[in-house]
Design a protein around this nucleic acid. Structure first.
Lengths: 298, 298
DNA sequence: GTCAATTACGTTCTCCGTAAGGATG
DNA sequence: CATCCTTACGGAGAACGTAATTGAC
């Protein structure tokens, strides 16, 4: 059996003739000269191995084999049309889906504006946002359930990583606190202060310890930043939190003072699966995230 | 949206690469140089309007859009493959169907051998044989339920007609009848004989009347030739029947004597629908029928 | 005689292969 | 530095258009 090599144009030509029963009119519909069209049909029949049309100069009709083929080709043609237009819709972001995981602070501070802009530009793309801690976010990314994960820390070899920001930490305290008026503080100055900490599993705590700010034995430890803010507001101590977490404390009427320490910085990274391309929809989302991160740096 | 022009080769190339994750190996599978293959993929992506593969010189993977497309293309490819091979099977008569209508005498005399030969050559073609009178056969043909009808008479303008044979008539009588020894008889010699007739609706009777052999007022009229044969065998008269009907009488031990009369002939025709092509399977059947008719003429 | 499909032929353009270029691990 | 994809370029063949030919009504 001969090698088949039919193009979409061939299928169109075949169906056009099957429908028009007339070479000249079908040729026009295909934007071809009538002669070229005739040759094309002849070639198609040759690869088919059987006459598909019965021609007398007056009438053109499908042979029984042609009718069978026409039915099958009609379906195939539609499927292909559909596949290509589907692709096109994905390419132009008229349909699609993007899933992002982000640390809670990022999800709360950056993502609302990011998603707002993205949605305005791509109203029909479905967006999934997971606000998770480090562990859960990397798991989602590993399983392919999210396109990207906005995390903290840079020692991730499993994924492709882009640094979005390297944020400083702030001391947070009540307005009446002795640090409240300072332009900045150093870790050394905190000696003897009651410091309220997040749980050991949090990225914030891990960065603090890496910078040498170990917790006192009897220090308070809680899970959520909102709780930290409430405890600080109550005067039970101060805390040290990264910039992206400050909104919790500003809301509570507390004061933030930058901590000056070269080592106490938290890199915010955008992690992607290695060797796995982003969808068009996800690429556009990453663009928005990068744009937001650039703005935040200023 | 750009004009799409994908060929089956393109689809094969795309799927080969999607599967192999490797340009060079996929190119080999498609019997193409690696360079040509690369260009082909580039063209496909251009018509797709979106990158389908993520290439780093080391790894080739599908983009999310490419994965979607691959799934759809896989199905389309299979459908097309199937459609073409289906066509091929029809063309080579490995599958198919042919339906024939034939007058009872033709069905009984010619068709057994015709069908036997056809079936030997085309064991997988389904054959339908309708043994019908003229009216029913033409109706089946008109409705497209049979490919051809082997009928009698030539005044059919509705269909395309080929004459297969122009058969003479024979007088049939008992061996003891005075005509039994003759080489031939004329219609004139039958004056005064008891002639047993078929019903007026039969083609045999119509031909007889057209040739001037009108029935006597009190002549016996029956529906079936087998009955005529039985009546003749009983000595109730003679009959005049076309050659293809003789088997009924020979079986009954009766004698056949040719009738010499220029006008008393029955043309056997092969009728087809006008402007409607025969299937490959039907064409082969017509060939067998023509062959049988040629043999019968000798 | 007219309309319509096929055939003939010259042109254009697509597609392929060889070979050079460039990127990645 | 070896592998492998891409780009450059030239040639072969396919596809197309114009025009002549054939065939049917």
């Amino acid at each position: 059996m001969a090698l088949i090599n039919l193009s979409t144009r061939d299928l169109e030509a075949f169906l056009a003739l099957a429908h028009a029963h007339h070479f000249t009119r079908a040729a026009e519909k295909c934007h071809l000269s009538q002669s070229a069209f005739s040759q094309k049909i002849a070639r198609i029949e040759q690869t088919a191995g059987v006459a598909l049309f019965e021609r007398s100069t007056r009438h053109v009709t499908l042979t029984p084999e042609g009718e069978v083929f026409a039915q099958e080709v009609t379906r195939i043609q539609q499927d292909l049309q559909h596949a290509v237009s589907h692709l096109n819709e994905l390419a132009t972001r008229r349909i699609g889906k993007v899933a992002i995981a982000a640390l809670p602070s990022v999800a709360a501070v950056w993502m609302p504006r990011v998603i707002s802009r993205y949605r305005a530009a791509n109203p029909n793309i479905r967006i999934e946002l997971f606000d998770t801690l480090a562990e859960g976010g990397f798991a989602l990314l590993r399983e392919g359930r999210v396109d990207v994960f906005i995390a903290a820390g840079a020692d991730v070899r499993e994924f492709d990583v882009t640094e979005l920001r390297n944020e400083p930490f702030h001391l947070v305290c009540r307005p009446s606190h002795r640090f409240a008026g300072k332009r900045s503080v150093s870790l050394a100055q905190l000696k003897g202060e009651e410091v309220i900490h997040l749980a050991r599993s949090s990225s914030v705590r891990q960065h603090l310890e890496a910078a040498g700010a170990t917790a006192q034995p009897n220090a308070l430890e809680v899970e959520h930043l909102a709780t930290v803010a409430a405890l600080v507001a109550q005067g039970l101590g101060v805390s040290i939190v990264p910039e992206l977490a400050l909104f919790h404390f500003e809301r509570a009427g507390l004061v933030c003072v930058p901590v000056r320490d070269r080592h106490l910085r938290r890199p915010i990274i955008l992690a992607r699966r290695k060797g796995k391309a982003l969808s068009v929809a996800a690429k556009a989302m990453v663009e928005e995230i990068l744009s937001e991160a650039r703005q935040a740096k200023r």
